[in-house]
C-alpha cells in the first residue's frame, strides 16, 4: 500500500504538459540557453514550422515560456525564454522521470 502511494506521488509529478517529445525538447533547450530564436529551435528539434509553433503556443499557455518580440534593425526577431515556473515544472518532471526509472531496479 505504501509502495502504491509512493508511486502515485511520483506519477503526479509527471507533467502532462511535457508528455509530448517536442515540448520536452523545447524546454530542454530553453533550460540551458538563456533564449533561443524560432529557426534555431526548429533546426535543433528537426520539426516543421507549424508543428513547432503549435507546441510553443501550448507551452506559452501553461506559462512555461515567454515569447519576446523584438526588432533587429527592421527585421522582426522573436525569441523564447523559459519562465521560472517553467523551469521549476521541468525540474520536477525530470526528477519524477529519474525516480520512475530507479524505482524499478
Amino acid at each position: 500500500m505504501a509502495q502504491e502511494n509512493k508511486m502515485k506521488n511520483i506519477l503526479e509529478n509527471i507533467n502532462k504538459a511535457f508528455e509530448n517529445r517536442i515540448r520536452l525538447g523545447i524546454m530542454s533547450v530553453l533550460i540551458v540557453n538563456d533564449d533561443m530564436d524560432f529557426n534555431s529551435l526548429k533546426d535543433l528539434l528537426g520539426v516543421t514550422d507549424g508543428n513547432l509553433a503549435s507546441h510553443i503556443s501550448a507551452l506559452e499557455k501553461f506559462g512555461y515560456i515567454d515569447v519576446i518580440k523584438q526588432f533587429i534593425g527592421k527585421k522582426p526577431n522573436t525569441t523564447y525564454k523559459a519562465t521560472s515556473i517553467g523551469k521549476k515544472a521541468f525540474q520536477s518532471h525530470l526528477e519524477a522521470l529519474e525516480k520512475l526509472i530507479n524505482n524499478n531496479d
Partner: peptide, 23 residues
C-alpha cells in the same frame, strides 16, 4: 511498471541530455 515504459523514460532522459548539450 512494465519494462517498456521504463525504456521510454530512459529514452526521454537521454534525448533531453543530448538536446541540452547540442543546443
Amino acid at each position: 511498471m512494465e519494462e517498456q515504459n521504463k525504456k521510454e523514460y530512459l529514452d526521454s532522459l537521454n534525448e533531453i541530455r543530448s538536446l541540452m548539450e547540442k543546443s
